[in-house]
Design a protein around this nucleic acid. Structure first.
Lengths: 244, 244
DNA sequence: AAGCATGAAAATGTATACATTATCTTTGAC
DNA sequence: GTCAAAGATAATGTATACATTTTCATGCTT
């Protein structure tokens, strides 16, 4: 069936463990926006010395999650709705560029294989009428594979790093597809087919526009769900938790 | 005359001094691509302990200048021509987005003032026929003001951070305008006038396309100068030094 | 001679002590 | 009672010692 494995996640060094622990705590809403993250507190909380804690905080600041002021330490950034939305705008133009570059360079055999696999897996998953939460979560993984493959085929590390940064913005992670309605999922899967077509057909401009609109549509869904929280409550659940 | 002051540059903490010192050393070509940057060596070289050195190296890695592997330290990244070129592609779509967002939001009085000042200063500078290196360097500062103001008016910190990251890629910094031919400088200044017009006139799509092409043209100039190094030797000078 | 195991050297990871800066509390003056 | 100054407290910045890992050289085995 699905030949796309889940990504591995190991941490050997303490710095990495602390990094993930603090990141998880932040995303779980355990800090207020603007709140200071004291090194010593985290130290006692995590049972390690200040050294790996400092390194982790610096990394999180470079990812945009924390603010840093010399001699004053780190504070949790607050993300306004505007910033979350513009993060999608940024991601849209970046992924659009990735699709264009990919179409210009052309895909290699392995990349074509992965994309076709992702398309087939999606087809299979959406074949039957009903879509459960499990389906959505599974589709989320397939979706990630599709996009990551295209980013990689663009051949620009800078571009890759920046897409990663976009995904570090709370609420703008691709796993949020879980929160979308069934029609949205089907529509997006059809987008994938067309985008693949444009890239394989070496149509850079079309690939860029399709991908751009594809990602921007996530933004629209988000705005829609924020406008009517009762209608699609699942979508705002995470958002509210993070803004608390 | 020119009411646009130069940016200030102070460093209070040692971490910052080390950061700038190492960054300057890298940009001056004092390390080979792929070469390791040993903490202890930098320690003895700079007369500080490993702590600020480690912090500086981590920062430089987050900016994309260094690679990091746990337990194995930092190495200087090598930037292929392709990567430098695609950095311009990225910058083009990002600045294009900034112009679009700026046109959508509209400029405030202060921003309009700064942009008009930049345009006037450019007009004055380019009025007389001859353009010296001093003129280019002066125009470079005016150019930076124009672009930075538009980034800021887009109102997205993520976008700002990413444009900054693009500029950290060697050879792709805006100060490279210095290396351009006279016709290029004049052409770009005219671009500025049209971009300003589009933003003030609240034409998001036009603003985006103009800005995108404006930045992409820098890429074209770079490619041109790389193709015929004898013709525009100044442009490649920095590039060769950094790739050595 | 090639390859592998062993151990020494050196580099990075981590903890901790001390220095410097920021923050808070207290005290005094008005 | 309010404000300001001074000291106390606590936080971050830096240096250094120790732990762990990597790397390299040495010598052994085949």
């Amino acid at each position: 069936m699905a030949a796309l494995p889940a990504p591995e996640t190991s941490s050997s060094t303490r710095f990495e463990s602390v990094l993930e622990a603090v990141r998880a705590a932040i995303l779980a809403g355990e800090f207020e926006p603007g709140e200071r993250l004291h090194e010593v507190k985290l130290t006692t909380l995590l049972g390690v010395s200040r050294t790996p804690v400092r390194a982790a905080l610096q990394k999180l600041a470079s990812e945009g999650l924390l603010d840093y002021t010399p001699n004053r330490g780190y504070t949790l950034r607050e993300f306004s709705i505007d910033e979350v939305i513009s993060a999608y705008e940024v991601r849209a133009v970046l992924e659009g560029l990735a699709a264009r570059l990919s179409a210009e360079r052309g895909l290699n055999v392995s990349e074509i294989g992965t994309l076709q696999q992702a398309l087939r897996d999606g087809d299979d998953l959406l074949r039957n009428g009903q879509i459960t939460d499990e389906h959505r979560s599974e589709y989320s993984r397939i979706n990630a594979y599709f996009h990551v493959t295209i980013h990689a085929s663009a051949g620009s590390r800078l571009l890759n790093d920046m897409v990663y940064l976009c995904q570090q913005v709370p609420v703008s992670s691709p796993r949020n597809v879980v929160a979308f309605e069934e029609g949205d999922v089907r529509r997006r899967h059809e987008d994938h087919h067309r985008i693949f077509e444009a890239i394989v057909g070496r149509e850079p401009w079309r690939a860029e526009m399709l991908m751009r609109d594809h990602v921007a549509s996530v933004k629209s869904s988000l705005i829609r769900s924020l406008a009517s929280p009762a209608a699609v409550q699942a979508a705002t659940k995470t958002a509210r938790r993070l803004r608390r």
